[in-house]
Amino acid sequence: MTHQVIDWIAVGCLLTGALLSFAAGVGLVRFPDLLSRMHTAAKPQVLGLILILIGIGLRMWPESHVGVLVLIALFQILTVPVAGHIAGRVAYRTGRVRHDLIAVDDLQAELEGDGGTR
């Protein structure tokens, strides 16, 4: 009985995770500029992966390799924001940003003020 319940939870996690990862992939194609694309790479992708890992972990449970899944999730959470930050920063500073898609831009004034230290 409990086995079945855990299986269903695992199935739910795997499906939701797959759906979010799919949305992240579609977002990379459909969003118009790099900054929005980095959003899809940073959020639905991480949560989707974590959900898939939880699903796998529930199915694998007493096996000792579950720890590896925890490590994967941990390093995703640690590294993905950094990658997004660097890509966003470089894109902005090299002018690969569509300003018509940005309603408010506090950074532009700042960079023009100090002559754009690159």
Partner: peptide, 18 residues
């Protein structure tokens, strides 16, 4: 974000705030 991926992504606007 997933919702905006599927619903009119080309009209999604952002903002940069300090």
């Amino acid at each position: 974000v997933a919702f905006h991926v599927l619903w009119r992504p080309e009209r999604t606007r952002g903002a940069i705030v300090a």
